[in-house]
Amino acid sequence: MNATDDTVAGEDARHDGKNRASRPGAPSLASLGGWRALINNPGLILNTLRHGGAVGQDALGNRYFEERRPTRQDGRARRWVLYAGRARDASLVPPEWHAWLHFTTDAPLSDANRRPWQRPHEPNMTGTAFAYRPKGHDYAGGARPHVSADYEPWTPDA
């Protein structure tokens, strides 16, 4: 549900993790959603209050945290995410933060480098009304386009 910290354990990432000059500051309970959030999810919120430093927030409102003081054996600071809504779905994490979360990059990729062809991140819509339906699916109209045959029919003009 929260931290994903051990997928990419490269030498560089470990090195950088240790030597980070400034650590993010502790979040306030209010910024994490107040008492209601604490009651709903006491372990995560308490852990985030005690160890977490707020790093940032993505376009969907998911907030990302990093340990203020590294506790991992390898000296790297754990990173984790608090999802914005009720959904607990890893596909909600956009690629720029996904890279950071998995220690591929030291900092989340900045929006400054966005290319015009990059589309906004879209989570997996399976099971929702926005799920992908192929052409001809009953929920997508049910009308199949006429497929051209795998043979060439004869016509008198040909």
Binding site: P153, W154, P156
Partner: peptide, 11 residues
Amino acid sequence: GLKRKRLDRPW
């Protein structure tokens, strides 16, 4: 040739 110039309907 079995896929070309096929008669696939009556005329």
